[in-house]
Nucleic acid binder design. Structure first.
Length: 801
DNA sequence: GATTAGGCTTCG
């Protein structure tokens, strides 16, 4: 037994054979005879188990001499010992090593640890491990109880091939306690931040400066291949937790650099703000201790000792020549040339200075489905993103909410007029402003997409709401609706049907002919009948929409889905991830000819531990019918399959989650789905939103999309019914996807508005608000019904005052 | 576990 683990709290070295003499790390030298020597130290860094091939394993760890903080040495473990060490030893454990050989450390110059290393392999190598007990101080009481819960979890009787993994216990190092070469976990307040930028190496780099109550300011450099894996920092002042960062020398000071297993969690700095940890790792440890840490740092930062928060500047407060951070929504973008991309953005406030217009070549503007705000004068500004920001701009989608760091408001006179990327200025007034995001990353210059849930975006949306004309109807409009005489004879239909406009703008009613001849980018009020509509088969009106990439696709039909599930059900099974316990559920034979069979099921160990066994089920190898069946018994069912011996999610052509009768799909383009633990201790609830976030799935929204042909005495007009389709029918698309009643409402509404075989004489007249706008490439005017809802009255005239 | 990284703008 090369690795021997002693009981928790046992005296380190208690069972070490007496013939071994313990030597301090500092006294180790190359070529010394170590056959009867031992070294004792705390594991301050534990590398991953690396397998160069076959049964060959290598693991590197760093031991810090228990009696001398300054002596740390690299230890290389080979073969079975490496594997055993990986399984049995954690960072923080105290290890006594014997039977090693001493070599020279090839990384000595870089990590500044001992110039020798210890190599352990073969039958003579031996390790004794002792685990320090949790300290019983007041500050760690909560840790202690959390640990008890973890132990309880270990002792949990589980079914089937149950497996649990020890949740790591984290200790945090103060920023004034950092020791070179040690892998640490830290908490801090961000006082400077550069959003991820392309380094000269293979990775993106983000650099931060963080501080804590010790007032030390420490540089952190995070290197990750992918910008989305970097810490999610929205502003200076955010609280950040870094796990597994290594203290390294750089430019004559220490810096923290991510190492294997690194994770970052950030929380907003607002003292009273929501405590929503943001992370790019799928599952992360977060408990009461973290909440306490954050509150402590928030309180400290609020005293003003940490850093001065940059004042958020809305467009209405921008002064010429100033630098500022802008929270905004992207409406459209256009590449101007290789070094400059135009972003048209707004934040719901009106800039008080005249704005420069930028001419864009026809067809180059990429706009989203979002309607531009009414009366855009002063609301929509042009941002010119240069050089390295062109690449970031390419990743953005119209509709995205953004934070642009270190934007500069520049009067036209200060920028070369002709130089605007070869375009021409329409009004070269010297004082007209454009907004420049200069090349480079100085002062944290960069762009970040904000999630809709962020408090800044929530505020932005509140500011924008009235400008998108979703207000309550005015008195006049209410009057207009009430006084509209019934347009078709009472009794012709059992249900009197008409429509109400729900907008508050003061557009005059126009005819369809007039509407067709007016410019786009505005709202029109029309009185029309519905001549025809498509699709006639209403289930085809139901689509899945991705609000991130704005793509839309059909909802897969049952046959397609059944095939996807059937294909996954014949794959050989696999064991579940470490956070699950597994078992089997017997299913009665569903239909004649299909035998009763057992399904592999996997439950979250944490949830089982909390007695919430019906909350979540990972279901492996089930058919669509079986999955639907079990979805009635479990709140959340995630279908899984095996791939290369590992458990994975099904292809995203299938729903990634079943909740009762509801099925949720993910965007194949925008998701990078991985099976991760969808529940962490203390989480309020599990729903499609939390599951999709954890799994890295971009949740698709059910929407209704129809094309209607409207008519009046003057003309006909094709319009879409999409953005406000739910308002129009008074049912949600999600309901329409699962609920027969909701489907009936939609089909009955269409039948009433456009009775089969009906003539223009008998069809109802509708008051409708129509938006005219340019489509994505700006070439074609489209129309969409908005702010309008269908009204069903029991009989004509009965409701009139 | 190779390498990448410390601001501090102003050009367009």
């Amino acid at each position: 037994m090369p690795v021997s683990v002693l009981a928790e709290g046992a005296v380190p070295g208690a069972q070490v054979p007496s013939h071994l003499t313990r030597i301090p790390v500092a006294e180790i030298s190359a070529g010394m005879d170590c056959s009867r020597k031992s070294v004792q130290g705390r594991v301050v860094s534990k590398g991953p188990l690396v397998s160069p091939g076959g049964d060959n394993f290598v693991l590197k760890t760093v031991l810090q001499d228990s009696h001398s903080d300054s002596s740390s040495i690299n230890v290389v473990l080979l073969g079975a010992l490496a594997k055993e060490f990986d399984r049995a030893v954690s960072q923080g454990d105290v290890v006594v090593a014997s039977g090693f050989t001493v070599g020279s450390s090839p990384t000595h110059h870089k990590d500044q640890l001992h110039r020798c290393n210890l190599q352990l392999s073969g039958e003579h190598a031996c390790l004794f491990v002792s685990r320090p007990p949790a300290p019983p101080t007041g500050a760690t009481l909560k840790r202690h109880s959390a640990q008890s819960a973890e132990e309880a979890l270990h002792q949990l009787p589980t079914q089937g091939s149950s497996r649990t993994r020890k949740t790591p216990k984290y200790t945090y190092t103060g920023l004034d306690q950092l020791k070179l070469g040690v892998v640490v976990n830290v908490y801090g307040v961000v006082v400077f931040c550069k959003q991820p930028f392309r380094s000269r190496g293979t990775d993106y780099c983000s650099t931060l400066k963080i501080t804590d109550q010790s007032n030390q300011i420490v540089w952190c450099s995070i290197f990750c291949k992918n910008p989305v894996d970097h810490p999610v920092i929205f502003q200076v002042g955010d609280i950040i937790r870094l796990h597994r960062v290594k203290v390294k020398p750089f430019n004559e000071s220490v810096s923290l650099v991510n190492t294997f297993g690194f994770s970052a969690v950030t929380v907003s700095c607002a003292d009273d703000g929501p405590l929503e940890p943001r992370t790019t790792s799928g599952s992360f440890h977060w408990d009461q201790e973290d909440v306490r840490k954050v509150q402590e740092l928030r309180g400290w930062a609020a005293t003003g000792q940490a850093a001065v928060l940059p004042a958020a500047v809305p467009l209405s407060k921008v002064e010429p020549r100033s630098y500022f951070d802008l929270t905004c929504q992207l409406l459209a973008k256009a590449p101007l040339d290789a070094t400059c991309t135009l972003l048209r953005v707004w934040d719901g406030t009106r800039c008080r200075h005249p704005l420069l217009e930028v001419w864009v070549e026809p067809g180059m503007m990429e706009a989203g489905p979002a309607l531009e705000p009414r009366d855009a004068q002063g609301l929509v500004v042009n941002v010119l993103a240069y050089d390295n920001h062109v690449e970031s701009a390419r990743q953005l989608q119209p509709g995205d909410f953004l934070k642009i760091f270190n934007l500069r408001a520049l009067p036209a006179a200060s920028s070369k007029a002709e130089g605007l990327a070869g375009s021409q200025m329409k009004e070269a007034d010297a004082s007209h402003l454009t907004f420049h995001l200069h090349g480079g990353t100085a002062f944290g210059r960069g762009i970040r997409v904000l999630p809709k849930s962020s408090p800044d975006v929530q505020k932005l949306m509140r500011d924008m709401e009235p400008l998108l004309q979703r207000g309550e109807p005015s008195d006049e409009e209410v009057l207009e609706v009430w006084c509209t005489p019934p347009e078709f004879p009472a009794g012709a239909e059992q249900v009197q049907i008409s429509s109400e406009r729900r907008c508050s703008h003061d557009a005059q009613q126009v005819t369809l002919s007039e509407l067709k001849h007016s410019s786009s980018g505005r709202f029109h009020h029309v009185r029309v009948q519905l001549k025809s509509f498509e699709p006639q088969r209403l289930h085809q009106a139901l689509k899945l929409y991705c609000s991130k990439c704005c793509s839309m696709c059909d909802v897969p039909d049952e046959e397609q889905l059944a095939a996807v599930f059937a294909a996954s059900s014949v794959k050989p099974g696999c064991s579940g991830p470490p956070w699950t316990c597994s078992g089997q559920a017997d299913l009665p034979s569903g239909s004649p000819g299909s035998p009763a069979r057992a399904l592999s099921i996997h439950l979250s160990t944490q949830l089982v531990c909390e007695g919430k066994t019906k909350e979540l089920l990972l279901l492996e190898g089930a058919t669509l019918q079986e999955t639907s069946h079990l979805a009635s018994a479990y709140s959340n069912v995630i279908p899984v399959t095996s791939s290369g011996g590992h458990m994975t999610l099904l292809d995203l052509s299938a729903p990634f989650l079943f909740r009762g009768r509801k099925r949720f799909y993910g965007c194949r383009r925008c998701s990078s789905a991985t099976l991760r633990e969808p529940y962490v201790k203390g989480q309020d609830s599990i729903d499609e939103k939390s599951v999709s976030e954890v799994l890295g799935v971009e949740l698709l929204q059910f929407v209704l999309l129809m094309k209607l042909q409207l008519q009046d005495a003057t003309d006909t007009l094709e319009v879409f019914l999409w953005r406000d389709a739910e308002l129009f029918f008074g049912v949600s698309a999600e309901e329409a996807a699962t609920n027969q009643e909701a489907q009936d409402v939609v089909s009955q509404t269409m039948d009433s508005l456009c009775p089969p075989g009906g003539s223009a004489d008998t069809q109802p007249w509708l008051q409708v608000c129509v938006a005219s706008y340019l489509d994505g490439d700006g070439k074609r005017t489209c129309h969409q019904i908005c702010h309008t809802s269908v009204v069903r009255a029991p009989s004509a005239g009965a409701a009139l005052p």
